[in-house]
Design a binder for these strands. Structure first.
Lengths: 350, 350
DNA sequence: CTGAAAGCGCTAACAT
DNA sequence: ATGTTAGCGCTTTCAG
């Protein structure tokens, strides 16, 4: 590998001068400049980023910690983050823990070891807030992304999206269409990460006088298969549902599949709506109505916030940035119920 | 940030000893060892990876260069690569060029500047083999991944998958089902990356005496929309096709959508088959039959090959690793034609 | 078994 | 305008 001194020697100058030329630090005569540039070109010199990082006290790298290979949302989001990070001159290191705590620890240690200047951690059920707080106390900038409840901030810098509101929007949409017998598939355990979306949905229904009976709520894994299973359990209960809200797009896709397996037309027999707006949502037939998260904005905010954490003094109250509200995206998987209670009637069942 | 000397001071030893303890270089008394370990723990010390990389002459990082945010195959593949790289003790830097040559250059320069120890480049139409060869000549390990034609290796180390064979398998499958009036949607320009799959498909048809007339071949972008457009053009030609081969899953999904828009039942009216087996293929209704690429193996081979390039002397003939052959995955999007030429008849049209 | 010293490639004062 | 010097945090001979 060509080094600075080799270039310097080739150009008949000293290392400092070459450095100055390369960093445009002025203070260099035009003629020398040319000679240096020519030598750089001729030798194919590329500055050693490690050395530079060491002396400057910072690698030009941000890390993104994601948990799961299975959830297509993360790659989609990662690319948004990469874009935003690049604009600020950072490289993005994608750290995929695959839900393995040991792997997560290993990555956090590496980041603590200046592998990256800071880390954006995707919020998920399993994140260890304590471990992240430790890391932050040790001086490593940490940003939690996709915190779901702006009203109750975590003890860490975070980007929050109001997902209670997402539940509200989904409920309002279904109510407006005339649905009254609605089911819910919740991704994850009760009390898990999706609880705010769920609560927003349930509260809105209740306020409309259409409170959801417990039998119409099923929990399942936050995956396509989990959604399908939960939907089968839900629909087998047979209370003549005309619509299903899934707390995430992945399980919503599972609901779509379950509907197909039960020969239910979507949206004719059953309307389905999810949350997030992953690419897959658009690609389903029928395309999935959903409440879109502002992912691009969240990614940008996360990167900005991490940057300001990097610049900030180590000890300060963890700031929070809130994205714009999620917004309803109506596609073809929701419509007015074909007839009230076609699958059991409004006044049968329960 | 805590440094080695601080730990050393805290433990009443010198930096070298701490280093020895941490690297398990023996030569350390048990009692000292404990004292050091305790100090490390107490101070929350993490070795600075940049410094280590600098002195060792290598960052523990591999880079993966991908071109497109839009193609879901890349994220899927990236996570496989990350996994394989991690097993060898590397971090993975995902470099997304977004098809911007300037961005690609910037990344390659950074990698040349020891940002990563080597780079895996996804083969795509636009890759500049020259630029990569330059990089390699400058001593940066480069591996080209997903080269589609093992019989004609590129001038770079590569992982090849025999995609001619993929075309053969798709053709054999359709022929075996009894299809004779078959259409093709090719992702990308004629002469582009997909030419081998296409040729394998066409050759096989021809050998079976069912050569494909030019009117039954359409080119389009290697995307869902591109596939849908091409399928519309193809099916509007109206030669009573009973099956369509798309050279990639993404356009195959587009064909599925076009079929739905034309009220064609899949597979009853039209069988559809793709190539790759991305996750989306499983998730379509009906799930897409396809010729699966050995992506996990390809990712592992690419990482291994890059490792051996890192170890190897800089000048040697570029090696090639060939994966196992692609394999047919039959799902519900292909079946025997319902009736020969239901959409025009075997002897009408043309 | 432990310490001292040199140096990885680069940058940033400070001198000249 | 250019050169000299010192060090970033770590590893690694080589002495003690």
């Amino acid at each position: 590998m060509t080094t600075l001194v080799e270039v310097a020697r080739a150009a008949g100058v000293t290392a400092a001068t070459v450095s100055n030329v390369l960093r445009n630090r002025g203070k260099v005569g035009e003629e020398t400049r040319q000679r240096v540039l020519e030598a750089v070109e001729r030798l194919g010199y590329r500055p050693n980023l490690m050395a530079r990082a060491l002396v400057e006290g910072k690698p030009h790298t941000m890390a993104l910690l994601v948990s799961s290979i299975a959830n297509p949302f993360y790659p989609e989001f990662a690319l948004e983050v990469e874009r935003a990070a690049r604009k600020l001159g950072y490289f993005l290191l994608v750290c995929n823990t695959n839900e393995d705590p040991a792997q997560e620890r290993a990555y956090l240690d590496a980041i603590g070891g200046a592998l990256a200047q800071g880390v954006i951690v995707m919020n998920a059920d399993f994140v260890q807030l304590d471990a992240l707080q430790d890391l932050r106390r040790r001086g490593v900038p940490v940003v939690l992304c996709m915190w779901e409840r702006p009203q109750e901030p975590p003890p860490l810098p975070c980007v929050a999206v109001d997902l209670y509101q997402a539940g509200v929007l989904a409920a309002e949409h279904l109510l407006r269409l005339g649905h009254r017998r609605i089911g819910v598939v919740c991704g994850g355990e009760p009390g898990g990460n999706h609880r705010w979306r769920l609560r927003g949905f349930l509260d809105t229904l209740e306020q409309a006088g259409a409170a959801l009976p417990p039998s119409c709520l099923r929990h399942g894994h936050d995956t396509i298969d989990g959604g399908r299973d939960a939907a089968h359990r839900l629909l087998a209960g047979g209370p003549g549902l005309t619509a299903v809200f899934a707390t995430n797009d992945l399980p919503a896709v599972g609901v779509l599949q379950a509907a197909a397996e039960l020969s239910l037309q979507v949206p004719g027999d059953l309307s389905v709506i999810g949350v997030t707006d992953i690419q897959l949502a658009r690609q389903m037939r029928p395309p999935l109505s959903t409440v879109a998260m502002p992912t691009t904005e969240a990614a940008a905010l996360a990167v900005q916030l991490l940057q300001s954490e990097i610049d900030a003094s180590p000890d300060h109250v963890p700031p929070m940035r809130v994205t714009e509200a999620p917004r309803l995206v109506v596609r073809a998987s929701t419509s007015a119920p074909r007839r009230e209670g076609i699958l059991g009637g409004a006044d049968s069942g329960d």
